[in-house]
Design a protein around this nucleic acid. Structure first.
Lengths: 245, 245
DNA sequence: AGAATAGTGTCTATGAGACAGTATCCA
DNA sequence: TGGATACTGTCTCATAGACACTATTCT
């Protein structure tokens, strides 16, 4: 049998299939802490609980395209660098039916995060508590902005997805540009250090941090300085894409 | 509407779904070089081409369980540590229909690799050429054991999957036990160094390598020595799981 | 002037590459 | 004894933590 003959006789509906979805972990910095954008579920199942923005993958739609569509339609964010995280396939993770979900991670600059939050009443920002527990990282829990636990639990297995996202982020912190992706175009070294500290869940040595950023060629001075500070204004830098990774 | 009411009225077949499969990258060491187990496709489509062992995910089967089933039934390997790699979702990656595939990576000890190879005529070992191209790693190509390019190309997007697997392996080499997973229970430091060099695609400094393995507490002496060597036999070590990661 | 933060200099510990040297085995 | 490999010692360099020090701005 040749390939065309085979394909003509092939029945794509022979076996029952799991449904396929994407879920988005949208991380940003809020008040100096790592935060995630969550959507309040308006429909059953698990209506009222907080969940990651997600949606089903179309039959002629790439996984990446589905993630972009959800980003646009459910989170109201035009563009962001999306990266595939992991695929969750527990049989009972959704009560409706068998749904396998491909999780994506996106890092939002502070302004984009705030804008998305302001643009939809269904969205909330959950501050992520990232305790330092060795290099491997500890558990991650989501709390409201004032530090109280979220009033409602996260839907489905979304707490697991969130925890994995932070773990991945932490792993990439030292050798990729993820720190810059969470900051505005111009930033101070202090802001950059705070972002790194927030993701690590542990403080960083100031001079060693500055030295490292300089030596790796990741930052370029803009010549400008911070404005409106109560004390000595810090120099503003921008991310130098020509640096070594 | 309550959740039970909602679920009762839910139609799981409302939308057309992609098919979901798993594909396995089975890596091992063969003649001191990194190698992958490939399966010759006996059926259409792309019959005759080399492919990663794979299969569809059952409707009540976890992704991990599907990967284990494929490992057992298609590669004839009883057990191995499987790790999810990435999910490939290009729309036209399979000519039959839309198939999204979750790729898994498994590392086989030398003996298990050879045993699987001997157990099935449809399996072949493709040596992987891993050129050194900076820390990020370069492209990976599959060749036969004598160094010639594979007579037949890899099916579907399986060359991409293979390349990603090697990249992931390289990334985890320095801070996980992947090097030991490819070796037998007892090994010499030279063997261990060769495995690391094969994955890195670049040679390693001998004394620095030995020092590192010692200092991290990853290896424990067995007291025994190599047998049957033409020259001074090397000390045999085993992996010390209590070491730091 | 004082407060508060920005930014620097230096000491030290650690880890790894380079490379030569010694030890041990077989033929 | 010689050849080949196992294994070690030491020098040097790069990176990062600790921590005190100076610099600059606003009130």
């Amino acid at each position: 049998m040749t390939e065309p003959e085979f394909l003509a006789g092939y029945d794509p509906a022979a076996y029952e299939r799991p449904a396929l979805a994407v879920d988005l972990v949208l991380l940003g910095i809020r008040a100096g802490r790592l935060a995630a954008l969550l959507l309040r579920r308006s429909q059953q199942p698990q209506a009222g609980l907080w969940a990651l923005p997600g949606g089903f993958v179309g039959i002629a739609e790439t996984l990446d395209a589905a993630a972009e569509r959800v980003l646009r339609d459910k989170a109201g964010i035009g563009r962001a660098r999306l990266e595939q995280l992991y695929t969750f396939g527990a049989v009972d993770r959704d009560p409706r039916m068998r749904i396998v979900s491909v999780a994506y991670l996106a890092l939002l600059p502070e302004a984009a995060f705030a804008e998305a939050l302001a643009g939809s009443a269904a969205l909330t920002a959950a501050t992520l508590v990232v305790p330092w527990a060795g290099e491997a990282g500890g558990p991650v829990s989501a709390v409201t902005e004032d530090g109280a636990p979220l009033a409602l639990a996260l839907a489905f297995d979304h707490a697991d997805i969130l925890a994995l996202a932070v773990k991945r982020l932490r792993g990439k912190l030292d050798y990729t540009d993820v720190g810059f992706a969470l900051l505005p175009e111009h930033f101070t070294l202090r802001q950059l250090q705070d972002v790194h500290a927030a993701i690590r869940g542990a403080p960083l040595n100031k001079s060693a941090f500055r030295r490292r950023m300089r030596d790796r060629g990741w930052i370029a001075p803009t010549g400008a300085r911070e404005a409106g500070t109560a004390f000595r204004p810090a120099e503003l830098f921008r991310f130098d894409r020509s640096g070594q990774f």
